[in-house]
Design a protein around this nucleic acid. Structure first.
Length: 823
DNA sequence: CGTTCCCGCCACCCG
DNA sequence: CGGGTGGCGGGAACG
């Protein structure tokens, strides 16, 4: 033990502090707090307690890293001032500063999102623990969930290999598949239904039966999901019977990938995760523990930017929940597509892969959503950060030598993986995601034609070396801020939906009103931010990016690739997934049957909508984009396939009976869905579009774009604006003046109203609009709609308070309202 | 007070 | 049998 302390603090309990502080992490802490120092009654008490407690021994008083300090400063900038002498608030290491999330951030900062296989991406738990000044135990928590995502893998005891996000795509696909096989969607439905019934004190006995049919049934207790190329972990060391965290984490993720609104409440998650193991036993403590674990997992997933916390509000108050913010996951596809896509794919991404270097160097590898051009001014920051990271990595603390064998594994794997991954990223894995949609359109505006699009040159900041990156259509801002950003943000500020979806009917109106906007048919299942409890079918629906050659000339379609919904065949999913367990095959038939059965009882969703981008964008050239996605998805089955518009809850049975029109446009009286975030995003889009289109050479690095990007990427907290004269600031949600409520009855009236509303909104996009801080989004939604048939409608209303509400269906059970709000 | 979740005891399990 | 793992839940910090 080398109790070498920089600060002469008399930490009696200070156990181990590594003298050799990492070069990167600025060790010196502003002010050191002496635990024994009696300046706060609380502290005294604490001391006494700790002293009295039998386990005083390893009471570590670790200081926080500069990062934390920074965050703290941000959090309470005002408090810093010299108020009443010295003693400020509490002790430095506030609980938050020790949070797992923060720790995870620090951890992730040490490794690149896309490490080059060449580098020795080894993780020594001990070292990390020391450098981060935390108990090893905490590192396990992080590593375990990372492992569940195959971002790391265990090599030997105390040693892990870092893979970064290279495998993420595949992993998520696999998880999604397994999730589907497990019929998590149905299970979720079950639980929700049960809750609902409980409210009315309905006989809960009946439920048991249902439970049996669903959740408990086929205890497909799947264990750890492995990746094809990944399993070969040091077999020797990897015997531990993976129980909880790892598996739990995977299941948790599955829930997101499988559920349509991609929002999962802790409660539901916990119940499902418990229910799997044992038949429903409302064990209080067990539940509680599960929740606690989920928080742990959620924290690191949050750090990975895969999810973010939101709140779901029902009649019974609001419950914590999480929303998937990670990449949209494509249904697993055979390898066939590889060639097809690779040819169509813009060279940049697919090529560079050859040289991992570039990949890893690209701090903003193209990722699912958040396809925003990296603002040049960010480059600097990014670079320095990366630099730091490099230092850390090369720090003497991690001198581990690579064994030939392991090295092999490491390098070999990525090589194969990358191409596929790259392609996915390119394609944009979320065909369904609205955000994807929008971002892509934005991207297209800016990037699809590099020549046309001027490269923003930040005043004084020019990074020629980065040019290539910018030129690449794919060199867009990924959400991978986690690895980049030194700043810790509370939550990803910006939401996810950037598009406005309109029903065709409304579309007309809108177009009329403001000709400058274009309507773009868009299949957006989960975009709306609405919660669709029974989107079971949805899960099987795959949006197909389209009709390749969809025209570029037709204004209505030119903007983005046309997308279609196609049902995904179970067969495809089945056959694609290679699960270690062979039992699967045996159950295949059974599952089919089950699936069919369940289909009958569940509701179906037919999503759709329109994206309303600026016309200018159309000028651009997105031809390439729209084309390349052609035939990505192999729709070998089309049970319910058909491009459909509108979000329409329909029961399977109804579906059969009603005979859904191919163009289900009229099925939905209306379905305009505005999410607060969309409002915020829109300005950006418009701005960028304007820049690129209006003036073919608009060097103006719009600050709003920067701000938005920063916020979105998490470099700065929401609400914070980067100094720059705001040309187009976020349009406050409140820009929507009136409440809009649509019902099937008074459609025409409502319609008008809506259009008006939209018009207002669109108008508000103009530069003159005053900026306002983003507000938490609130989505109200009805659950458990009754089988209302085609008449069911969705409606949206914007409250004067700036929050929006989206509710669907007038025939839903009113009590089943649900709100999702981001903090 | 409810939510979030840190801390670290201690059971496992693997050399 | 020692040490790495990590399940687990009390209870403190936070809001």
């Amino acid at each position: 033990k080398t109790p070498l302390k920089q600060a002469a603090t008399s930490h009696s309990v200070l156990t181990e502090l590594q003298p050799d502080c990492q070069p990167l992490t600025t060790p010196p802490k502003p002010k050191e707090i002496l635990p024994a120092d009696p300046w706060t009654p609380t502290s005294n008490l604490k001391m006494l307690i700790s002293a009295a407690s039998p386990e005083i021994r390893s009471r570590e008083q670790r200081r926080e890293l500069s990062n934390n300090a920074r965050e703290v400063l941000q959090a309470k900038p005002c408090l810093q001032e010299h108020l009443s002498g010295d003693e400020y608030e509490k002790s430095q290491p506030s609980r938050k500063e020790k949070s797992l999330g923060l720790l995870c951030h620090k951890f992730l900062a040490r490794y690149p999102d896309y490490p080059s296989p060449a580098a020795n991406n080894y993780i020594c738990l001990d070292e990390v623990a020391e450098e981060l000044n935390v108990e090893r135990r905490r590192i396990y928590d992080i590593v375990n969930v990372l492992e569940s995502l195959h971002m790391v893998s265990r090599l030997a005891k105390n040693r892990y290999a870092w893979h970064g996000r290279h495998n993420l795509s595949k992993t998520l696909q696999a998880l999604k598949k397994v999730g589907e096989e497990n019929k998590y969607t149905q299970q979720i439905q079950m639980i929700k239904k049960r809750e609902y019934e409980h409210e009315f004190d309905l006989d809960g006995e009946r439920n048991e039966e249902m439970a049996r049919s669903f959740g408990s049934n086929e205890h497909s207790e799947m264990s750890f999901v492995e990746l094809p190329g990944m399993e070969f972990r040091a077999a020797s060391v990897n015997s531990r019977k993976d129980k909880s965290l790892r598996v739990m984490s995977q299941k948790f993720v599955m829930l997101f990938l499988v559920s349509t609104p991609q929002i999962v409440s802790l409660e539901v998650a916990a119940k499902i995760l418990i229910g799997e193991d044992q038949l429903e036993d409302l064990d209080k403590s067990k539940f509680k523990t599960k929740i606690r674990r989920l928080y742990d997992i959620a924290n690191v997933l949050s750090s990975l930017q895969l999810i973010k916390k939101v709140h779901v509000t029902e009649e019974r108050g609001r419950k914590p929940a999480f929303k998937w913010t990670g990449p949209e996951v494509l249904p697993y596809i055979q390898d066939t597509k590889l060639e097809t896509t690779s040819t169509t794919c813009p060279p940049p991404v697919s090529e560079p892969i050859a040289s991992k270097e570039q990949c890893s160097k690209n701090l903003f590898p193209s990722r699912g959503k958040q396809n925003f051009t990296r603002h040049p001014s960010l480059i600097k920051l990014v670079k320095s950060i990366e630099n730091d990271r490099r230092k850390i990595q090369s720090a003497p603390t991690s001198p581990v030598k690579t064994s030939a064998s392991t090295d092999q594994n490491l390098s070999a794997f990525p090589r194969q993986m990358v191409p596929a991954i790259a392609r996915h990223q390119l394609e944009g894995q979320s065909k369904k995601a609205n955000e994807m949609k929008l971002s892509r359109s934005a991207l297209e505006c800016n990037l699809s034609s590099p020549e046309v699009v001027p490269k923003p040159q930040p005043p004084g900041t020019t990074a020629p070396s980065q040019q290539p990156a910018l030129a690449q259509p794919l060199a867009v801002c990924p959400p991978s801020h986690s690895s980049v950003s030194p700043v810790i943000l509370p939550h990803a500020p910006s939401g996810v939906s950037y598009a406005i979806y309109l029903h065709p009917s409304q579309a007309h109106t809108v177009t009329t009103y403001s000709p400058s906007f274009m309507l773009q048919p868009l299949p957006c299942a989960n975009v709306t931010g609405m919660k669709s409890p029974n989107a079971e079918v949805l899960n099987k629906i795959t949006t197909e990016e389209g009709d390749n050659q969809i025209a570029t000339d037709e204004p209505t379609k030119s903007l983005a690739a046309k997308e279609r919904l196609t049902t995904k065949s179970e067969t495809s999913s089945q056959r694609c997934l290679k699960r270690p367990q062979a039992l699967q095959e045996n159950n295949l038939i059974k599952r089919y049957r089950r699936d069919e059965e369940s289909l009958d009882t569940s509701l179906t969703f037919f999503p759709s909508g329109y994206l309303i981008p600026l016309t200018q964008c159309a000028h651009g050239n997105k031809a390439g984009f729209s084309k390349e996605k052609a035939g990505i998805c192999s729709l070998q089955h089309t049970t319910y396939a058909s491009p459909i518009a509108g979000v329409i809850p329909v029961t399977a049975s109804e579906l059969k009976a009603v005979n859904i029109p191919k163009t289900a446009f009229h099925l939905t009286p209306m379905n305009i869905m505005l999410s607060p975030t969309s409002l915020a995003a829109a300005p950006v889009l418009s701005n960028s579009c304007l820049n690129s289109s209006n003036t073919s050479s608009a060097p103006n690095p719009s600050p709003s774009v920067l701000n938005f990007t920063l916020q979105h990427v998490g470099l700065i907290p929401a609400g914070v604006q980067v100094p720059a004269n705001p040309v187009l600031q976020h349009v406050a949600v409140s820009s929507q003046p009136e409440n809009v409520t649509l019902t099937s009855e008074n459609m025409s009236l409502q319609e008008e109203k809506v259009s008006k509303n939209i018009f207002n909104f669109l108008s508000s996009l103009q530069p003159s609009v005053p900026k306002e801080p983003q507000e938490p989004q609130t989505v109200t939604e009805n659950f458990f709609r009754t089988p209302g048939g085609p008449n069911t409608v969705s409606s949206l209303s914007a409250n004067s308070d700036g929050t929006e509400r989206i509710s669907q269906g007038t025939q839903y059970i009113p009590q089943r309202k649900l709100e999702v709000s981001e903090d």
